[in-house]
Design a binder for these strands. Structure first.
Lengths: 212, 212
DNA sequence: ATCGTATGACTGACGGGTCAGTCAGTCAAT
DNA sequence: ATTGACTGACTGACCCGTCAGTCATACGAT
């Protein structure tokens, strides 16, 4: 039994090694141009060993995305139900957590891969939508409703618009990733400031002469 | 002389044929997986002919992006300097034009290619930044300043945030493209409604109890 | 008008490099 | 001795880029 455990641990560790190596190589080249020879070398194993853990290149890619993307939105619901402070501070707190997540190099690389190559794998898209997008949008909706109930968010066309398209609250983070993936060398974005500015704008609005 | 003109026209037309075929094939497969054999067949020419018009696969890709992306922001400045109506209507008018642009299939495909593959070609990134992004951000800045000068946009931290990061006004359009490129089959976005909702939110803001 | 020559756009079979996936054999552990 | 994880040389399909050859047209000479 202990042997079996030991074996299982070894296998799990090796699998993790492979995924880490795959992330490096896929992120550097994109799916189509990434070489499995490079993944094997990076992982310190022979190419044949890859095929003991993953059926083919696509399975490796999908495994990579799935295991790195899934944990992202889990925390939000817990935070929301516990949080006692104002909606504004709740939004800022969650935005800070989200920003920290997407600034983690691994997560950033997985997001870039999902944006650049992910849409070519329908099963992956479905998984992503189910495990990440749906709970994420639900969390945003919950925040807005909580804010309206507490009288901190206006029950007006503005909040109706956000409830209709909760994606708008995620838009700045997507923009950050795409911008810095493309223009990082030429005009890097101050990601923290950008997120702050977005929240400021969203809460206050632009129109002059606004009344409560 | 007439012959020469005739020839030149033929060549230009053929070049356009090739670019159109290349857009189809690259958009369907991405840069790395696209086959030049397919481009040639789609264009109705032999593969060798491709190389009479473009040095290699990369040059074809770059030509494709450059010729389709460059014309986008030219119009904005003209519109802004002529426009007489309120800032709100100016923003809605420009958003409508932008939406129409990115809903054009060719433009949509080029944007997707730029997002998915573009960042791997530094010269292309520099071109894109210089010819599209810079004038686009300048146009947004001009709109906001005009609105403040006319007293229609509040001269507050909100507008300061937008002036610091004019990208925020383009963010919804980027979100639309990325969302529908990934989730179109599974949960298509109503692009027109999304753009409207974003403007509504941006102008009015979420916070309750707001004063002028 | 007719013929011969020059031009250059176009063709498509092919060379050669690349890389996903295979499998016969090795090795370590029990 | 047996099991099963691991290896890495190998195969073959794939596809970019080339180039020797074709052909339609232009043009000068008669």
């Amino acid at each position: 039994m202990q042997n079996l455990t030991r074996r299982a641990l070894d296998k799990a560790a090796r699998r993790a090694d492979i995924l880490a190596a795959a992330l490096t190589v896929f992120a550097a080249n994109g799916f189509a141009s990434a070489r499995l020879d490079d993944v094997a070398r990076e992982a310190g194993i022979a190419k044949g060993t890859l095929y003991l853990y993953f059926a083919d290149k696509q399975a490796l890619f999908e495994g990579l995305i799935k295991e790195n993307l899934a944990p992202i939105p889990v925390m939000a619901d817990d935070v929301i139900s516990i949080f006692e402070d104002t909606t504004e501070n709740l939004i800022r707190a969650l935005a800070g957590m989200l920003l920290a997540r997407i600034q983690t190099p691994d997560v950033r690389q997985v997001m870039q891969l999902m944006i650049a190559d992910g849409y070519r794998f329908p099963e992956l898209v479905a998984f992503h939508y189910r495990e990440v997008v749906t709970p994420g949008l639900a969390a945003i909706t919950a925040i807005v409703k909580r804010g309206i109930a507490r009288g901190e968010i206006r029950d007006t066309p503005e909040s109706a618009a956000l409830l209709r398209h909760p994606q708008m609250l995620f838009a700045p983070f997507l923009t950050i990733v795409v911008w810095n993936m493309t223009f990082h060398e030429i005009a890097p974005l101050d990601e923290h400031q950008f997120a702050e500015d977005y929240i400021t704008l969203l809460l206050g609005g632009l129109r002059a002469g606004e009344q409560a």
